[in-house]
Design a protein around this nucleic acid. Sequence first.
DNA 1: ACCTGAACACCGTTCAAGT
DNA 2: ACCTGAACACCGTTCAAGT
Lengths: 222, 222
Amino acid sequence: VLSTTTKTPLSRDVVVDRALQLAEAEGLSAVTIRRLAQEFDVTPMALYWHFRKKDDLLAGLGQRLLERIELPEEASRPWGQQLRALLIAVLAGLRDHPATAPLAAAQIMGCERGLDLTERTLEVLAEAGFTPDEAAQIAHRALQSIIILVTDAPGVEVGASPQDIDQHQRTKRVALASLSPERYPRVVAAAAALTTCEDEDAYFNFGLELLLAGVSGLAAQR
Amino acid sequence: VLSTTTKTPLSRDVVVDRALQLAEAEGLSAVTIRRLAQEFDVTPMALYWHFRKKDDLLAGLGQRLLERIELPEEASRPWGQQLRALLIAVLAGLRDHPATAPLAAAQIMGCERGLDLTERTLEVLAEAGFTPDEAAQIAHRALQSIIILVTDAPGVEVGASPQDIDQHQRTKRVALASLSPERYPRVVAAAAALTTCEDEDAYFNFGLELLLAGVSGLAAQR
DNA sequence: ACCTGAACACCGTTCAAGT
DNA sequence: ACCTGAACACCGTTCAAGT
């Protein structure tokens, strides 16, 4: 039989690409050696030529994500503004990848972009007056904070349709709203706020401010 | 044949207990329906009498963890001190459970202790002057921060022997230390700080301070 | 109420073999 | 260099059946 579509040969890049799409569309659990093989119409074992183990694939995903982060130009601004710019860049790069963002954390020290990001962050924090030890911990926690921010932004259930998400949120909201208002007055009152989030930008902004305020607060004590 | 050991009947509690031990000893991936069945010398399907699905088991783990958190007595102290006391309590409860701590986050609104914790936190944050919406987000992020703090405390690789951990850290440290000192001066200088952590208490303390400084900083702007 | 047995549709991974 | 085939040791889960 004649095949009109010539099969593109497998490569790390093309597999990582597909895995990334798959993860965001159906959740990270859908990213499976066998499933990917099927997507490329190939034997599962074919992937083992390009990746030593599944972990190797996941590392590839993490690195690819980090490459999405466009580091801002170096500029001689106050350290607070520089830190903010760095964190905004991280957020922008990871924002559309809630399912895979955690994979990025593991690769921070394992690829150029991650190292560049870390170097820049450590530099800014040194400028703020932190010791190298403090800067190292803050840099680490700042990145993790952004990832959590992205990962459980309200309104992102990874492998679910929009109406599923809506339904799920509604269910949770009524569950909270129907608790005893004597025992849990604040929870009941905040039922909506705890489950939904009308303005995503505001949510991310507030998360950033909380983090930056923490760093500034500690810096002021130095 | 005579059996001297009478088999204790299965129950949710006893299974959750064993699963918790198993997770911390060999990693969460060792917590498997089939493995647990084996531990209790029982058919895998026996567990399905007590748990509807594996998710149900994991929810049980999360709830059990939350019960480990001893909420401090209510006291009329300044809100900052109250918040600190709450976060310290959470940290104390989860500290020995790095492998399973993330499961607690999912159950926060799903059990009494979690709701109590949330209610108390929202109350304290209201006292600090935050709107219900702001309080809801801060409460959520504060808990998540503690969990991350516990989960990737340096020196806790879940399913690994002490010497494995040591070896792993050493490898990472030399990898960082041998980077180009022209391109990555700060990373190279902080190689030790980025991989190890000599004082665990100091690590947790610093994480708490960063978080509290953030909340205080935002509160001051209100 | 509580557990067993057999079966189904999945996993990651190794090892030898093909082209 | 790049991929296939068969096999192994795992998963979660359903369904019918036993006591």
